[in-house]
Design a protein around this nucleic acid. Sequence first.
DNA 1: ATCGATGCAAAAGTTTTGCATATAC
DNA 2: GTATATGCAAAACTTTTGCATCGAT
Lengths: 155, 155
Amino acid sequence: MEQTIEAYENILEEFRKLIKSSNLKYTKQREFILEAIFYNKGHFTPEDIYNLILKKHPKSNIGIATVYRTLGFLENSNLVTSISFGTQGKKYEFGLGKHHDHLVCLSCGKIFEFHNETIERKQKEIAKEFNFKMTGHFMKITGICSECIEKMEGE
Amino acid sequence: MEQTIEAYENILEEFRKLIKSSNLKYTKQREFILEAIFYNKGHFTPEDIYNLILKKHPKSNIGIATVYRTLGFLENSNLVTSISFGTQGKKYEFGLGKHHDHLVCLSCGKIFEFHNETIERKQKEIAKEFNFKMTGHFMKITGICSECIEKMEGE
DNA sequence: ATCGATGCAAAAGTTTTGCATATAC
DNA sequence: GTATATGCAAAACTTTTGCATCGAT
């Protein structure tokens, strides 16, 4: 699924506003980071993103520290979301649009996405029960995907 | 909530069997790690566990590497479970007994637990839909707890 | 001109690994 | 006695920070 240029322009616009309203400065590095996450569907470590940018903008001379700093900001602003998959580190993905959760295959690492309204509703109820002001939620089902099950049976 | 000695004896028995059936060796270090997680209700980093053991068994001379190695084994065996809270690292908790999920306060870091059957059921349905052999699931609601909300309003 | 943002490199923190020794079986 | 587990220390990673300089406003 390719993202359209128009969609990106809208996001960029939102991003500019967000930066302005946070009294921050608009820099090309920040834009590159947003761009990298937007155009590459999937889940990326800060280092992945850093490398994507180096590849796409070889002379941009961006630093990994900037990637970390910007991801922090983007996450707080809900433009990207992060999760921890597997044993190590954090991965980021573009975070606008309908909320979704993940199925993670422990064998091949593949990630499947789903959305379920019943669960979403229940989560809100639970937060309310605890007098919790919910700002986010996150769900992950781990297991073995059908493809890997077949492979195992084939052995 | 204090755990009873009897309950621990049962776990220990299970642990021994598990080790035997995995063709591993039973060592006092492995027992100390299980003990530390069992008797201290909560969520611990590997380092927390390491320190708990040093404190309880000052002359045991355990190494942090052993803690990491054993936690990996315990997690694979479902005797403990791990989650990533906040920005950094992984925390472990004792993992037998009824499955539960977590509410995490982003302000004070406190963790609340809940269990909801509807969500559990839905998760199973979703795994089935994807032909996924589910081995675990994990849900986290983030937000601000009622105590912190009050504090903020008081300011 | 000002003040925040950046890159770099160092530091801090976390997890894994190699290896000689100790210990369970 | 043999093979695995351990502690230690080093290495490998990941993330954060300090600081001089750059660049957006």
